[in-house]
Simulated scan of single mutants.
Amino acid sequence: MRLGVFFLVLILIFLLIIRNIYIVKEGEYKVVRQFGEVVRIDSTPGLKFKFPFIQSVTTLPKYQMTYDVSEAEINTKDKKRMLIDNYSVWRIEDPKKMISNARTVEKAESKMEEFIYSVVRSELGQLNYDEIINDEKSSRGSVNDRVTELVNEMLSKDNYGIVVTDVRMKRTDLPPENEQSVFKRMISERESKAQEYLSMGDAEKNRIVAETDRQVKEIISKAQADAQVIRAQGEGEAARVYNQSFSKDADFYNLYRTLESYKKTINGETVIVLPSDSPYANLLMGGQ
């Protein structure tokens, strides 16, 4: 009987020990509370033991976490409204401070979101709208770093025991009521740019046409000048041949010139009055 009781007591003690042993894993904190107060925080991996009945254990993440910050509306330096959607990467650095001041992970995230919104609104309020949305003009990278730095200063000042590794903008949008006006402005800008390209094209076309016309005129002028020279040379050669030919028979030349003059002066309606001793009359009358 005594032996049975002894073994029963051993079993109860073993179960009690087993139920109060806990394991600390990589990437987590184990928070040990006694009557609701934090008495110990275990961060090194291994088997740990808590006092039965009076102590409890909860777990907090030790690894980096991502938090999707709620979308918020801000005003830019040039008085334009826009919607900003951020996310943050953060971790718990001091679980005891986090529990003491924020109590839970959810409340720590809520406080971090509040600080992020405050800093983002302040920092982007110093930039113009185009500087925020235009990648070529944007200083967004430096703004993200600045926001991260300022948020950590605020969290450290209030002893929240958490650290923000990074804050990034994942999306920037216009409020729905402003989208249409911006779209119209973008369309207008692109139409203006297209018109500029068309004007440049027309100017280049006119330049090419003018240059081509100039070259054509030069070619035609040169061809006409060459033709005049060739024609003059041909007429000179023809005159020389005529002179050589006609000088061999003066009577034939006179006859030829007379017949040529007939072609120019006589037609079907021509009336000619000639003296009887005229060479024309002599030829028409069959004289020699």
Rank of each mutant, 00 (worst) to 15 (best):
N267P: 01
D68C: 08
S156P: 00
R140Y: 01
P61N: 04
A194P: 00
N144H: 15
L255I: 08
A102S: 11
V151R: 00
V89I: 12
G27H: 03
G46W: 02
I162E: 10
K263R: 15
R171P: 01
N178M: 06
N282T: 12
I116C: 09
R33A: 02
R91D: 10
K137N: 11
M186P: 10
P279G: 09
V216G: 12
V147G: 01
Q215H: 08
D135H: 02
V5F: 15
Q195S: 11
E26N: 07
M186Q: 09
Y87L: 08
K48W: 07
P52S: 01
D145R: 15
N75H: 14
I13F: 00
E179C: 02
G46C: 09
A239R: 07
L3M: 08
Q244Y: 02
S88M: 02
M82N: 07
K170E: 08
V271M: 12
G46I: 09
T265W: 15
E269T: 11
G201A: 04
K263H: 03
N144Q: 09
V105F: 01
S261N: 12
R185M: 03
R190K: 09
P176S: 02
R121E: 06
R171A: 15
Q215D: 12
R103D: 08
N128S: 10
V24L: 13
L150S: 15
V151W: 13
S181Q: 07
I266H: 05
Y29M: 15
R214G: 13
Y160P: 00
V38P: 02
A225D: 15
